[in-house]
Amino acid sequence: MATTVTVPAPPVAAPPGEPRRGRRRGVGRLAVLLVSPTFLVLTLVVGYPLIDALRLSFFQKNSGVDPTTGMVQEGEKFVGLGNFTDLFGSDQFLHALRNTTTLTIASVTIEVVVGVAMALIMNKAFAGRGLIRASILVPWAIPTAISALLWRWIFQTDGAANALLGTDTLWTTEGIPAWIAIVLADTWKTAPFIGLLVLAGLQIIPAEVYEAAKVDGANAWSTFWRITLPLVKPALIVAVLFRLLDVLRMFDLPYVMIGPGKQPVETVSVLAFQEAIQFTRFGPAAAMSTILFLYIAVVAFVFVKVLGADVIGSRVGGKR
């Protein structure tokens, strides 16, 4: 999403004696020339599909059937914002939007807590640290569709979850249990990702800061709260941003684990996929994707601008 390829030109003072404008124009031209292949590729690969999806979202396929021959009317018609207004009047879409949001908030929150805990453990020096680090990362290495299958087996009625809990909950039917199952499976898979990024942040915190804290008599909690957390914050915010963008377009986990059409775990991506592929209605599907795109863009914008997520590393080593 964040494809802003701004090249921050360092403010160079114009060398004395040289006409400032000429020099700039020359450098600018070269820069345009050098960047143009990238822009060309981006236009083709990112721009065109985006614009075409937007165009598609203003059309609807004709679906009427001729009552005498039984044949379908062909072609498509322009409906303006019709697809969008339809969506906001549709319970199914509003549910999907709500599911996407609640799943995102719940799973990212839990992942942050678990991920930070994992990072703190991985950052400690102890025997077998390598083994712990490797094993924590295993879930992250398993393709989502495969882990979704594993979790489906765990959560089926005669599966491991019910055996362990001593219950006979129907996890894969419509209901809160399905939603909980998804949050659990997603946390299991992606908490290591947050752990990994936070670990990287932890490792650049100099040991002197902690020594100073110890000298000042800070306890473990205030060390964590006053030193570790503020210093690891840039890394954490980037990790959370990546996770948010990922969960907001969550598709494979609910689709494979619970199946499409189950309301509590139907996300916008699943709904859009069904609409386009199952029902071959590309207009409404494109409208859904567009709304999801805007939703994700707003979240990313808020993170970058308000919380100051440093995604492209432009402030590495620098102060604000």
């Binding site: 599909p49 985006l50 075409d52 999806a53 598609l56 072609g75 386009a276 590309f282 795109f293």
Partner: peptide, 17 residues
Amino acid sequence: MRRPRLAVLTVAAALAL
């Protein structure tokens, strides 16, 4: 975002139709 080819296909089909 994963649907560019289908999109292209539909457009092509629509034009053809």
